[in-house]
Design a protein around this nucleic acid. Structure first.
Lengths: 144, 144
DNA sequence: GGTTAATATTAGAATTAGTCTAAATTTAAA
DNA sequence: TTTAAATTTAGACTAATTCTAATATTAACC
């Protein structure tokens, strides 16, 4: 069994449609941010995304990048990954998957396993429903 | 199948022995911190633990609490749980388990499931070994 | 035990990711 | 088109955590 997500072909996603579908109002800045973010599957911090946006020449404030990522996360357009207290990543691939995080290299790799979640879904605490399964498998390099 | 960790009877753990076993040098402050931390299975932030220590009347600086928790985590005495960018919990139960986190209430509950980890362990990225599996199942209250 | 080297502790300063504020602007509604 | 609601912005602010560098404690060695 292979847990790795197949490298998906670069998707030309219709971000406008995505945003509407998720109940996110369209604005100029949100389009700019979404265009950069959903250009490909990636894991970025808010700061990294801010820089990426800047590189396009469009001006969007840092506050808006933070606000927009928070909004996108709440609306299910992106997934938040909390690696540690100073490393919050946003995953532009919002499909159900998990991650390998290499504590040595900082690499963050997708896992396509769904089993854990299915398993757990059957036995949630009383009165609750599943929100999100965050599974981060921290791996380290085998030292030579 | 029941995923919940049985509430373990309050353990009177020998913290001195634990620290030696994990290669942590003994100091007055570390004993104080460990005594409070391992008094029972609990999830605490560094700040909460700092307060708990203060309540015992012993004086330990905040920096030492942070340093010591970091050290304990590196040495495997406690587990770090990153709930979000401003919420790092330390779990005094370092045995292999996962968590339910209720995004509505902030409750953090143990899960005893081991299956996910076993599964993943068989297919790690090339050249890496398992460090830690962090599985946080975020649940939300079913609204009435 | 006494001397030296290594480790640990401390208060407070510094950092930094992220949030807040309040004014200006844009978008939606009526 | 006038009004209301939502969004953006720069920069101030917050809070968790780390850093600094001086002091104190512990371990290592003779």
């Amino acid at each position: 069994m292979n847990l790795y997500e197949q490298q998906q072909p670069p998707r030309k996603r219709n971000v406008t449609q995505m945003m509407i579908a998720h109940g996110v109002n369209l604005t100029k800045q949100r389009r700019i941010i979404a265009d950069v973010l959903f250009e490909r599957n990636q894991h970025v911090t808010a700061d990294q995304l801010f820089d990426l946006v800047k590189q396009t020449g469009c001006r969007v404030s840092k506050a808006t990048v933070y606000n927009t990522l928070g909004l996108f996360a709440r609306k299910g357009l992106v997934r938040e990954i909390f690696i540690d207290a100073s490393r919050t990543f946003y995953d532009s691939n919002n499909s159900h998957h998990h991650h390998f995080y290499n504590v040595d290299t900082g690499d963050l790799i997708d896992i396509k396993d769904r089993l854990a979640a299915h398993f757990i879904e059957q036995d949630l605490p009383e009165g609750t429903s599943m929100d999100v399964v965050d599974l981060v498998v921290r791996v380290k390099n085998i030292k030579p």
